[in-house]
């Protein structure tokens, strides 16, 4: 599904200093994988997601989705394959535009846009979809999105990212800016949308509990590389404590074979 080979990215910080954000990174996600990504600040989690989305160009290496090499594709072209939800609830929607207009834009993700009215015939469909969210938004189609709460906006963004089923869904700490209760709701919503569509997902999170609970695979990043890859039984046997322990060990020793780590 998603194949990343030997990916490198270095940022120039100015004044002759550089930050190697991704170092010779290899990663393969299978169709239907729901991968949670953990790691300390500066580990390269967000960079990885942004590279897949095309925000930054790769220094070297390749990124392919379903066998199509997209390494040189610009961001807006990759939108055809990729749905995204950001950490900042304000980031995923256009505040001055109405709920139905936001949905209409998302409905055309990665497709050719024309001179047909954006909302028009889709209003009924949008209403039905919003009703499923159970936030009362179906009665507020013509309200500007800026009037919504952070949680409502994030729920809407999630819906927009998956309105046209994406091959790959990228969630960049999409619950981090919300209060615990709302975060819980958004995670539940994420789970049900992902299950319904059988999506392939990469989700960055700082919540280790969440990282182990949600999805079927967890990777840990450090210094621009993947230092731990948990799946199946191995993942089920991992607790938050042992993950934390792994965290501190990785920090001390820079690199550890994951087998040794869990022994």
């Amino acid at each position: 599904m998603l194949q990343i080979e030997n990916l490198n990215k270095t940022f120039e910080l100015g004044g002759g200093t550089f930050k190697r954000a991704l170092v010779d990174l290899d990663f393969v996600a299978q169709e239907g994988d729901f991968v949670t990504i953990v790691g300390s600040n500066g580990a390269g989690k967000s960079t990885l997601l942004n590279m897949v989305a095309g925000v930054y160009a790769a220094d070297s290496g390749t990124i392919a989705i379903d066998g199509t090499d997209i390494t040189s594709w610009p961001e807006h072209k990759r939108a055809k394959f990729v749905g995204r939800v950001f950490q900042d609830p304000m980031m995923g929607t256009a505040g001055s535009m109405t709920i139905e207009e936001n949905l209409a834009m998302a409905y055309k993700r990665g497709q050719r846009r024309g001179l047909k009215l954006g909302v028009a015939r889709n209003r009924v469909k949008f209403k039905a979809l919003l009703a499923e969210l159970d936030l009362g938004l179906e009665k507020r189609l013509k309200d500007q999105v800026r009037l919504l709460s952070g949680g409502q906006r994030q729920a809407l963004t999630l819906m927009m990212a998956t309105l046209k089923t994406p091959q790959l869904l990228l969630l960049d700490e999409h619950t981090a800016a919300l209060d615990p209760k709302t975060a819980r709701r958004i995670i539940d919503l994420t789970q049900s949308i992902v299950d319904n569509h059988g999506l392939t997902v990469l989700m960055v999170t700082h919540n280790l509990q969440q990282a182990l609970e949600v999805g079927n695979r967890t990777i840990m990043m450090h210094d621009g590389g993947i230092v731990l890859d948990l799946q199946g039984r191995k993942r089920e046997d991992t607790s938050v404590d042992s993950l934390l322990e792994a965290f501190s060990r990785v920090k001390k020793e820079r690199f550890l074979d994951d087998r040794a780590l869990l022994a």
Binding site: A53, P74, E75, H76, K77, A79, K80, V82, R84, F86, M90, M91, G92, T93, A94, G95, S96, M97, E101, A104, M105, A106, K108, R109, G110, Q111, R113, G114, L115, K116, L117, G118, V119, M160
Partner: peptide
């Protein structure tokens, strides 16, 4: 025009460029 598919995209360019780029608008 500002209510057409292209028009909505244009309005989003001024409102939230990052978001509309993520939705596939050049």
């Amino acid at each position: 025009f500002l209510h057409t598919e292209i028009g909505l995209g244009l309005r989003a360019c001024g409102d939230n460029e990052k978001m509309i780029k993520a939705l596939g608008v050049d």
